[in-house]
């Protein structure tokens, strides 16, 4: 992959009080690749996501999205630049219907912004796009159900749908298959593959089958540092990774 990376982290550090959680992470995610971050619990994977997506400010270093500094921007500005994320703990609008959840996720990218002069029932193109996405997620039958009443796996699917709805070209998924059964996981992987086609995907994932199935590149984060980064075959063969992480898991 040539040209500018989709995401570039340069010596990113994050302290919470005196505790250093991210201890100098440098990472390039190439445009169009599927990149997985793995690592033991407490390695700082989710924190890293929170830094990239603007949820927390960084302590030092820099984060670029396609060459543009984003580390001082609020989440909504980063999102408007084409980066969208999901959450480890499902984050939807529980009292809105499934349809409304998805439609909200489409609003900004469709240019509606803070309008109080457009009537949504009349926004045909928007509603059709929402319906199409709903079918794509296999949630068409849940159209009018409050999202909080969906099953867990359905909520995860909705969350992925809301993340990709706005058409962001860089997608961050935080443990999209956490807590899913085997068949649910298979379905979710297929869904992720489908909806992130042609986009850059950065994901945190614990399920090694999912990681080795989906990812083009794997980065291993241990204790706030990158100990290895490369294609799955290289990571599998890496001694340091085996000792620090994969070995421990196998044992």
């Amino acid at each position: 992959m040539t040209g500018m990376p989709a995401i570039r982290l340069a010596d990113v550090r994050k302290n919470f009080g005196a505790t250093e959680i991210i201890r100098g992470v440098s990472l390039d995610v190439a445009g169009g690749e599927r990149h997985a971050i793995i690592g033991p619990n407490g390695a700082g994977k989710t924190t890293l996501f929170n830094l990239i997506s603007g949820r927390f400010p960084i302590t030092a270093g820099s984060i670029e999205l396609r060459g543009q500094r984003i580390d001082a921007l609020p989440p909504q500005r980063i999102n408007r630049l084409g980066l969208s994320r999901s959450f480890q703990i499902t984050s939807i609008f529980p009292r809105l219907t499934v349809f409304e959840n998805l439609r909200c996720a489409l609003l900004w990218s469709r240019g509606y912004r803070y309008s109080f002069w457009h009537l949504l029932p009349r926004a045909r193109a928007l509603n059709e796009a929402t319906e199409a996405l709903l079918r794509d997620l296999n949630l068409a039958e849940r159209h009018d159900l409050p999202a909080g009443l969906l099953s867990y796996a359905e909520q995860r699917a909705l969350e992925i749908g809301m993340t990709v709805a706005g058409g962001a070209s860089v997608i961050l998924l935080d443990e999209p298959t956490a807590g899913m059964s085997h068949s649910e996981t298979e379905y979710a992987v297929a869904l992720i593959r489908r909806v992130t086609e042609g986009k850059t995907l950065l994901m945190v994932e614990h399920d090694m089958r999912v990681v080795f199935d989906l990812a083009d590149t794997i980065t291993v984060l241990v204790y706030g540092r990158v100990i290895a980064s490369g294609p799955p075959s290289a990571i599998r063969a890496d001694r340091a990774v085996q000792e620090a992480y994969l070995g421990a898991m196998a044992a």
């Binding site: 909504q76 999102n79 609008f93 409304e100």
Partner: peptide
């Protein structure tokens, strides 16, 4: 609609622009 969304989960709304 976004007022409803922010009521339910303001953080999610942020990550939608």
């Amino acid at each position: 609609r976004m007022a409803n969304a922010c009521r339910d989960n303001f953080e999610r709304a942020q990550f939608m622009g």
